[in-house]
Design a protein around this nucleic acid. Structure first.
Length: 894
RNA sequence: GGGCCAAUAACUCAGUUGGUAGAGUGCCAUGUUCACAGCGUGGAAGUCGCUGGUUCGAGCCCAGCUUGGCCCACCA
């Protein structure tokens, strides 16, 4: 009882969360049992490592909740459960953050500091400010094994990255070459196709005239959105069938400013309808032109420095930025009479995901991974069913990308990241090595001294794609953890990284685990794509839009459990969710309801358990409901239907347990029948205990604290914390159809009385004398047996059951479930409302009856519908007829 | 241009193989010694986006359309 006294009438999450988390963590219960001590069945989840610079947003909170529900459920279900946490070094993002900070504080650039010093500063920053987000995952209650927290720049990860690179190199899947790449002029690095987005912007379409060589005063007009690139033009293309330009194909035109003669060529890719029908070709700075240039063997002219200013090829504009050149060049063309129309257009501008600056395509030396050979097995993994997406439709998205995959540009001109493990001797002979090679050491192939390492670093995803492998010990193929925990079972992540991360992890699994059979190379069985969190208006939540709801604010206000439960209750599998702060009320109220229900139970427990099974119908009923709930919640969690599980629990706790069972238990607990009271106490304790277990994955703090209090009240020492106590089973429970049917009858009768009270304004607890006509014998029998329950719930002075009793004078009536309930009231009661309600119901029932009768007259229905359906319809007609008869009789009676 | 998702009560959303349209919030009425006013009880509220089709029967299946959102591709 001591613990119970301490429970306040309100659930105050702030007081309990932190100490409980510390207790869990200290107990080691988030770690899987040591090898040999567990049950052997493992369940592994890899967290999608958030950026080390990140802070928790609502998407993280939802994803963290989902993963923790899965992990806690499996842990309680007896799996050796491992959830590996970690953060991603996020090359570009982190370097940009620290660069900015250093410049703001010291007015120094990374070049001022030098590579080694700059990297040291990033590590310092990471130690001090990084990993905030992992603490935030803790406050959400996430039960990761923090002893295994991994950072993608940790030494073992680095070794894995180098090893993977070397393996690909040896298979001939890595190559270096000059290609047109997406250049970010602000961050001054190449980025991959997957890191650019197309932003719709207003722009202009400039028409430029190039004089035709050898024909005075004749021009060919081209249209472009990027006039400054004309300095790099090496041709003009027109459609071969375009009459206007037929005579010009094969001629040359003279490019102003740089005075270059370039050919006019015919190319099918030109749309004669668009612009002027003639296209300038700039192979060095446009992907489509690059291809056109290749087809017509046109030279490539590189115009840009790495910062976006023009180089010497820019002629008079050399040294100026692309923006300035655009203005000046257009003005100069105009002056020369070479500027045609200038149209306003809206077009898509390719933009860097990271810096938000326009991408400048340019030709540069980069490292690439050949993707096609890697994609094949990843495609098979899905098609053969080793990998499943939830919702399934994302599988199509995954396949579409893999089937059209482009080679992956993996080099970045950054400092923060995994240095490309390639070294060169003085003749520039390259060698890739998983072990660090020292400058001056002999080159493994040529024996000459090594003079330098490749200066570039690898794309961040080149480490995260190894996360499931490297965190478990790869490249040591004999690592015990790899054997025990790989492949993993569940991955939950956001849709936008299906390409960037998910698909690549599958590729990595197949590429780097050759010793496993096909199924076990696949890194995770189920890839769950969670909902996108939108704001109240349906817009995507984002920092830049400023419409985000900070999950930490919500946790502070409502508690982690309320945030978790609300999110799950609102989020149907894979369906986007609109969120506003008040939506967290529902979870909060539910937690409070559970808290108070538990208080009630504990206030009435005396520390003993009842002997033998109860024959009370309400006990059998609630245990039957508990059995159904346990089954449904378990099945739903097995299948990752979180919303179904949460909804089932919500209804069971509130509508069955609190509204009916707890109310029914009150008169027993205070009555003189000690055996009945004991059974009530035992049932309350059983239901509460199991409910806490079922709820634990959703609301871990609440349930853990109540679990402790409940056992304390019972005078027991729990065999385990709720976090690891066995998942509730239906042992000793069964669905009891007859008890459920009996409860239906009681609820119908009680409902009738309550409706009468409400409509006639009779106080809820004023004792009433009730006569009920119950034509159905079995229902009357039920009510006879459970008159006590009905009387206590409906606050009746007396209950008389009959088959043909007349409505007493001045009495109100209500009808439900074939029960006609008369309540004797005084003369001064207003019956008008009651009559309206009766008439309304009668009308509704009559309508339903007509429909049902028509159905049964329909030969098609009788012939083609299933026999059980027809039978059910017949029974329904009987019910409706009775109900209608009772209702109409009473409407007429007023 | 290709693909995906959504449209159900005032709002946010459920609706499992086709067979009686539901929940939470809000609203109206009412009730606080007896777990919880963060609560109880009762009530009102829906042309299931539109048009066809399949079927004995469609919120659900099929076709087309409208509106909103997302992804891929990227015409200078």
């Amino acid at each position: 009882m001591r613990a119970t006294m301490e429970l306040s009438t309100r659930y105050t999450p702030a007081d309990i969360e932190k100490p409980l988390y510390e207790k869990w963590e200290a107990s080691g219960c988030f770690q899987p049992p040591p090898p040999g001590e567990g049950r052997g069945k493992t369940f592994t989840v890899m967290i999608p490592p958030p950026n080390v610079t990140g802070v928790l947003h609502m998407g993280h909170a939802l994803n963290g909740t989902i993963q923790d529900i899965v992990v806690r459920h499996r842990r309680k279900s007896g799996f050796d459960t491992l959830w590996v946490p970690g953060t991603d070094h996020a090359g570009i993002a982190t370097q940009a953050v620290v660069e900015k900070k250093i410049y703001a504080e010291e007015k120094k650039t990374r070049d001022d500091l030098g590579r080694d010093e700059f990297l040291r500063r990033i590590w310092d920053w990471k130690e001090e400010h990084g990993n905030i987000i992992l603490r935030q995952f803790r406050s959400l209650g996430c039960s990761c094994d923090w002893t295994r927290t991994k950072f993608t720049m940790d030494e073992d990860m680095s070794r894995a990255v180098r090893t993977a690179f070397v393996e690909l190199w040896e298979k001939g899947l890595v190559y270096r070459g000059a290609r047109l790449v997406n250049w970010d002029c602000v961050l001054q690095t190449a980025v991959s196709d997957d890191e650019i987005e197309y932003v719709q912007r207003k722009g202009k379409l400039w028409h430029l005239r190039y004089p035709v060589v050898g024909r005075e005063d004749e021009f060919i007009e081209v249209a472009t959105t990027r006039p400054e690139t004309m300095l790099g033009d090496t041709g003009v293309a027109v459609h071969p069938d375009d009459e206007r330009y037929r005579g010009l194909v094969g001629k040359t035109v003279r490019l102003p400013f740089v005075d270059r003669e370039i050919p006019v060529v015919a190319d099918d890719s030109v749309d004669p309808e668009y612009g002027s029908g003639a296209v300038k070709i700039t192979p060095g700075h446009d992907p489509a032109d690059y291809e056109r240039g290749q087809r017509h063997e046109l030279p490539i002219i590189d115009l840009l420095e790495k910062d976006g200013t023009l180089n010497a090829n820019g002629g008079p504009f050399a040294g100026k930025s692309r923006e300035v050149v655009r203005k000046e060049l257009v003005a100069a063309m105009d002056e020369m009479g070479l500027l045609g129309a200038v149209d306003d257009i809206v077009h898509n501008v390719s933009t860097s995901d990271r810096s938000k600056s326009p991408i400048e395509p340019l030709v540069s030396e980069q490292w690439f991974v050949k993707m096609e050979p890697l994609a094949g097995p990843a495609i098979d993994a899905l098609n053969k069913g080793y990998l499943k997406f939830r919702p399934e439709r994302w599988g199509k998205v995954y396949l579409h990308w893999l089937e059209n995959v482009q080679d992956w540009c993996i080099s970045r001109q950054l400092w923060w990241g995994h240095r490309i493990p390639v070294w060169y001797d003085e003749d520039d002979v390259a060698v890739a090595s998983a072990d660090e090679l020292e400058i001056g050491a002999p080159h493994p192939k040529t024996g000459k001294p090594i003079v330098r390492q490749d200066p570039d670093v690898l794309d961040t995803w080149a480490s995260s794609w190894l996360f499931p492998l490297a965190t478990l010990g790869w490249p040591d193929h004999d690592a015990p953890d790899l054997a025990r925990f790989y492949p993993t079972q569940f991955l939950s992540t956001a849709q936008e990284i299906i390409y960037l991360w998910v698909a690549r992890m599958v590729m990595a699994g197949y590429a780097f685990m050759p010793e496993r059979d096909e199924r076990d190379r696949n890194p995770f069985e189920t890839c769950y794509i969670h909902a996108t969190v939108l704001d109240g208006k349906g817009k995507r939540m984002s920092k830049s839009a400023g419409n985000g709801i900070d999950p930490l604010d919500m946790i502070e206000q409502y508690g982690a459990d309320a945030v978790r439960f609300s999110l799950v209750l609102l989020t149907k599998e894979g369906q986007d969710v609109r969120l506003s702060p008040d939506r967290f009320e529902q979870g909060s109220r539910f937690c409070n309801k559970v808290w108070n229900a538990a208080r009630f139970v504990m206030m009435n427990l005396a520390g003993e358990r009842a002997q033998g099974d109860s024959d009370r119908f309400e006990d059998r009923w609630i245990l039957s409901r508990l059995a159904r709930t346990t089954r449904e919640v378990s099945a739903a969690l097995d299948e990752y239907r979180f919303n179904d599980a949460a909804t089932t629990l919500y209804r069971f706790v509130w509508n069955d347990f609190c509204d009916w069972y707890v109310e029914l238990s009150k008169h027993r607990l205070t009555g003189d029948d000690e055996s009945s009271a004991q059974h009530a106490r035992a049932t309350l304790a059983r239901v509460l205990g199991d409910t806490l277990g079922l709820l634990h994955p959703f609301t871990p703090y609440l349930t853990e604290s109540l679990w402790e209090a409940l056992h304390d009240t019972l005078g027991e020492t729990p065999e385990a914390m709720c976090a690891i106590a066995p998942w509730p089973t239906t042992d000793g429970l069964d669905v009891d159809e007859s008890a459920e049917g009996e409860m239906d009858a009681v609820q119908d009768l009680v409902g009738c009385v309550r409706r009468i009270r409400a409509l006639t304004m009779v106080a809820e607890r004023k004792p009433l004398r009730v006569i009920a006509n119950v034509p159905k014998d079995h229902v009357r029998g039920v009510l006879e047996r459970h008159a006590g329950a009905a009387r206590s719930l409906a606050f009746l002075e007396s209950l008389e059951l009959a088959t043909e009793a007349e409505r007493p004078p001045s009495s109100a009536v209500a009808v439900a479930g074939g029960i006609e309930t008369f309540v004797a009231l005084g003369e001064d009661v207003d019956f008008a409302k009651l009559k309206d309600v009766l008439a309304g119901r009668a009308e509704k029932i009559a309508k339903a009856l007509v429909g049902a009768e028509k159905k049964l007259e329909n030969q098609g229905f009788l012939a083609k519908a299933g026999e059980d359906v027809v039978q059910a319809e017949r029974e329904r007609v009987v019910e409706l007829r009775l109900e209608k008869e009772l209702l109409e009789r009473n409407v007429a009676g007023f």
